[in-house]
Structure formats: C-alpha cells, structure tokens
C-alpha cells in the first residue's frame, strides 16, 4: 500500500506527534488514499525497480522517496494481530539520544559533534508475544539459625522447617523478536513496551516506516520465551522463600502451559553513527524512548573522571577528619 494525499498527491505518513495520518507537503490530516503495492519488483508510484531484502514488509523507494507497504507481506499468514504505533517522533528520538549521551560521561565529547548519522530510520520489528500459565510446585527443607550468649557460653539453635509452595503465574505477552537482523540482547534491553497501547493491526500505521515480517515461525522462537518464563518463575518462587539461612530442594517442578501467541509489530528507531571509521548503532524504543547502544569510550575521560572522583573523595574524607579533630 502507498498512502497518497487526496489534496496534493504527496506521501501521507503516520505522525506520532499528531497521532494521525499526515501529509507533510500540504499539512492535511487524514487525507490518505491507499494505492495497492502488490509487486515486489517495481515501485507502484514511480515504476523504479526495487531491491528488497528477504524479510522486508515496508520500505522507502530509493528513487521517488515514497514509503510503501508490501500488501502480501502483511496479509494472510503474515497478517499481524497487533501493532503498537510509534509514539516517539523522529525529533523526540534524537533528543533522547542527546540526553543519553550527556549521561554517559565516558563518551568522548567529540562523539556528538563529529559523528555523522549514516542511518536513521523508524522500524516496526516483528515480535511474537507468548502467553503462558506457569504451574510452580516446590518442596524443600529450610533451616533457621539463632545465636545467643549467656555468660561465657554461646548457644546455637538450628530449627528445621518443611517448606511447601504451590503457585500459578499468569504470564501475559512475553516478547521475543522474530527478526534475525535484530540483536537479541539489544531487543531484551529495549523492553518493556507498555502493552495498553497495543492496537488491532492497521496497515496505515506502517506508512512512513520500515518493517520486516517474522523471519522465523512462532514455534521456532518459542524456546526463548519459555526460557524467560522459566527464569521469571524461578525468581518469583525464590522470592516467596525468605528468612532461611539455608534451603535444600527436595522437589521442584515448573510447568509451562502455552495459552496464546500473538504476532505483533513493535516500534524501534535505529540510528547508525559513523565515528572515527567505526559504526555505532543505537536503538531507541519507539514507545518509551529508552536508548540502547554502545557508545565509544574515551580512556582519557575514564581516567580523568575516575581519578578526579577519587581525589575529591579523598579530600572530603581528610577534610572531614581534620574538622572533627579540631572540634574535639
């Protein structure tokens, strides 16, 4: 689909600021007229040949600059159930990056001024969201130790308890990205998304952005979701077993029952910076504005700031001691 403006023929794209379809040429709102983009070889707007990657579902024509969505990649088996429309605009994403770099005190000062932006694009990343019911059963032995003194004797009392736990955990939409391109650890840090903004899929939200359809099936990605559910179940179980000095497990069973799997598109801003012949990639959560990415580290800044902190702490410590001594 290509969304063209009824008033001027320009490209209408989804605007996170206006929360509406917007034509940047004539400033019209919701003036879109959808034109199908069925071909995978040719731009339906200008006829230029397309060089698409395997999993592309939304792209920008390199020739005429129009954003299009490949209709057959968002329908049928590829039809997403849910979409979380971009809430952070391009300008806001840039501002978030700026703020983040200010916080990253070890980033060289020149990074912001010298780095060139080689890529900056909003992208919908394909995710599978898994619902699980986790049944946790635990049996163990715990000991509590109490120590007290009478006269010159020290008494140690060890009490043994039988610990029984049974809990049901209702996991809702554990996200796993289904894009090979996207680094899993980066996507994990990108979480969480606020699911209350999820909407039933509408193609128009993709206009103005890039996107992929799922690279792997929900069945293939399941293990990562189960790992997460298992780990969280374990953590939540441990949180209910408190106050013991030692616990031995007699029986533990974490059983995951799969309820539902949702195919969803979640928004991410991707920035590639070129700095001193290296590329630094940053991701900004298109909903929350959270920034993920490794920035360059300036060794001299690490030494300067750590060294300064050390010297300042020493000065404060010795001055406080000096003052205390004078006072007494």
């Amino acid at each position: 689909m290509i969304y063209k403006c009824n008033n001027c023929g320009g490209n209408v794209i989804y605007s996170p600021e206006k929360k509406a379809m917007h034509c940047s040429h004539c400033d019209s709102l919701e003036s879109q007229n959808p034109t199908p983009q069925n071909s995978l070889e040719q731009c339906a707007n200008c006829g230029a040949p397309l060089k698409l990657e395997e999993f592309t579902s939304a792209y920008k024509c390199e020739h005429c600059g129009v954003y299009f969505i490949l209709d057959e990649k968002v329908s049928g088996v590829y039809l997403p159930h849910l979409i979380l429309p971009f809430q952070v605009s391009r300008a806001e994403a840039k501002e978030k990056l700026k703020q983040e770099f200010k916080k990253r005190i070890f980033t060289p000062l020149a990074f912001l001024s010298e780095a060139s932006l080689s890529k900056m694009e909003g992208s919908y990343v394909p995710f599978f969201l898994y619902d699980y019911t986790s049944q946790v059963d635990f049996e163990g032995k715990g000991s509590k130790v109490r120590v007290w003194r009478t006269g010159n004797k020290e008494h140690t009392e060890t009490s043994i308890y039988s610990i029984q736990r049974n809990m049901t955990i209702d996991f809702d939409k554990i996200p796993v990205d289904a894009s090979i391109k996207m680094n899993d650890s980066v996507m994990d840090l990108m979480e969480p998304y606020q699911y209350q903004s999820l909407e039933a899929f509408q193609e128009k939200y993709m206009s103005g952005f890039f996107s992929e359809f799922y690279n792997k099936t929900a069945e293939e990605m399941k293990n990562r979701a189960m790992d997460k559910a298992g780990r969280d179940s374990e953590t939540l179980l441990q949180e209910t077993i408190q106050g013991y000095s030692s616990v031995t497990t007699l029986h533990k069973d974490i059983h995951l029952m799969e309820d539902k799997i949702h195919y969803a598109l979640l928004p991410v801003w991707i920035y590639d910076f070129r700095f001193r012949s290296k590329t630094f990639q940053f991701h900004v959560n298109g909903q929350t504005g959270k920034v993920i990415g490794k920035s360059p580290i300036s060794i001299s800044k690490v030494l300067l700031y750590s060294g300064s902190l050390f010297v300042f702490l020493l000065s404060i410590g010795f001055l406080i001691r000096g003052i205390m001594e004078v006072f007494s």
């Binding site: 060890t158 809702d172 953590t235």
Partner: peptide
C-alpha cells in the same frame, strides 16, 4: 520478574512453612 505477570504477582495456592525439629549446640 513480574513485568509480564498478569496482575503483577503470582497466585499463591499453597504457602506452608511447617516447623519440624530443632537442636541447640553450646
């Protein structure tokens, strides 16, 4: 751990800590 847990916490069906025995050393 509770980010994706419905209601923000697990349902505890059984929570039992039963005292079995104790011993004292001096």
């Amino acid at each position: 751990a509770t980010t994706y847990v419905n209601g923000g916490k697990p349902n505890l069906n059984q929570v039992q800590d039963i005292f079995l025995t104790k011993h004292i050393t001096t």
